[in-house]
Each structure stands twice: as C-alpha cells, then as structure tokens.
C-alpha cells in the first residue's frame, strides 16, 4: 500500500489531488504548510511527497531541504506540484533538491501516469 503526503494550501486543489489519488487507490495524508509537512514526515515515513511551492509559514523549497536532510528521506522522491510554470521554474526547483516537477494545471491522466511510474519503481 503506497502512502503519499500531499502538501497543498489551496483547499480546492488539495481536494482535487486527494480525490484523484484516492480514486487511484493510494493512501493519502495532507499538510497545509511546510512546517506541518515536516512534522508529518517526522511522524511517519511516506513513499512519496507532492510538494506545493507557494506555502504559508514555510515554502516548499525550504521544507523539501529540511525533509531531504532527514536520514530516512534521502531516497524518498519529493515532487514539486506548483503553479509556477514559467520558463526556468522547473530548473530552479530541481536545483533546489526536488526530484521532479509537475506544473499546474495538471493533465489528470499524465499526472496519474507519472505517479504510477514513481510508485512502481519501489
């Protein structure tokens, strides 16, 4: 059973992602900001994290850096899921330590294909 953490502050979008993932059969937990995401990652080991970048209290890049510094998260993929979709944004996030990048708005079928690719890797 694959466990995912979705970090998203926009309720509408959080609802959408959770609906899609649950429909695909994933176990989904969510956090509404960076700090909450770190706390949750400390409590439980997730198989994959979907990380929004623009977040209150602590942004996704900083949260990812801290999570990636946790010993058991070294190899856990953290994927940016963000509305920052201008040219150069993807490179910026990958350089900051995120493993992949999915721009919003998502194409649902592409989104599912990408997640399945990550989860079947394990």
């Amino acid at each position: 059973m694959t466990r995912l953490l979705v970090v998203e502050d926009d309720l509408m979008n959080l609802n959408l992602i959770c609906e899609i993932l649950k429909a695909e059969g994933f176990t989904v937990h969510y956090a509404m900001d960076g700090i909450e995401a770190i706390d949750m990652a400390k409590k439980m080991l997730y198989d994959l994290i979907l990380m929004d970048i623009e977040l209150p209290r602590m942004d996704g890049i900083e949260a990812t850096r801290i999570i990636k510094n946790m010993l058991n998260y070294k190899k856990i993929p953290v994927i940016a899921l963000t509305a920052y979709a201008m040219r150069g944004d993807k490179e910026r996030f990958l350089a900051a330590g995120l493993d992949d990048y999915i721009p919003k708005p998502i194409d649902v079928s592409d989104f599912i294909k990408k997640l399945e690719k990550y989860c079947s890797r394990d």
Binding site: M12, A23, A83, K104, V108
Partner: peptide
C-alpha cells in the same frame, strides 16, 4: 507577470482538474 501567472494557474488547475475528473467518470 510571474505572480499573475501563478495566481491564474492555481484556480485553473481546479477548474480543469475537476472537469477532467468528472469526465473520467470515476465518481
């Protein structure tokens, strides 16, 4: 420009996403 792009895309994600979700008829 950068902020506008971000702020426009966020609600669009919900609009397009949910409509696609509906179209997939999983619910």
């Amino acid at each position: 420009l950068s902020n506008m792009s971000h702020e426009l895309r966020t609600p669009l994600n919900a609009v397009i996403g949910f409509s696609e979700l509906l179209k997939m008829k999983t619910i």
